[in-house]
Amino acid sequence: MVYINGKEKDAAGQSIAQYLTENGFDSKRVAVERNGDILPKSKYESTILHDGDQIEIVSFVGGG
């Protein structure tokens, strides 16, 4: 199980990019924390989710 935004998800084996697309995230608006570090955008395709990973996805909204 992968922990994404505090919830258990059966997402091991997927790339971050796949997970974002399949779950309706706009990758142009997100920041992703993986196991305590901000994951560079250039690594979304090549980073595979593993069991036990702690992922936090923040989707920015407009206004300022």
Partner: peptide, 28 residues
């Protein structure tokens, strides 16, 4: 103001200047 620019800045600074602190805003 725009969500895409917010994410661009946060991700770019995190990647190219990892030693810097970033204080961002989303949702007000």
């Amino acid at each position: 103001d725009h969500a895409e620019y917010k994410a661009m800045l946060v991700n770019s600074v995190s990647e190219y200047y990892p030693e810097k602190y970033i204080v961002a805003a989303s949702g007000m």
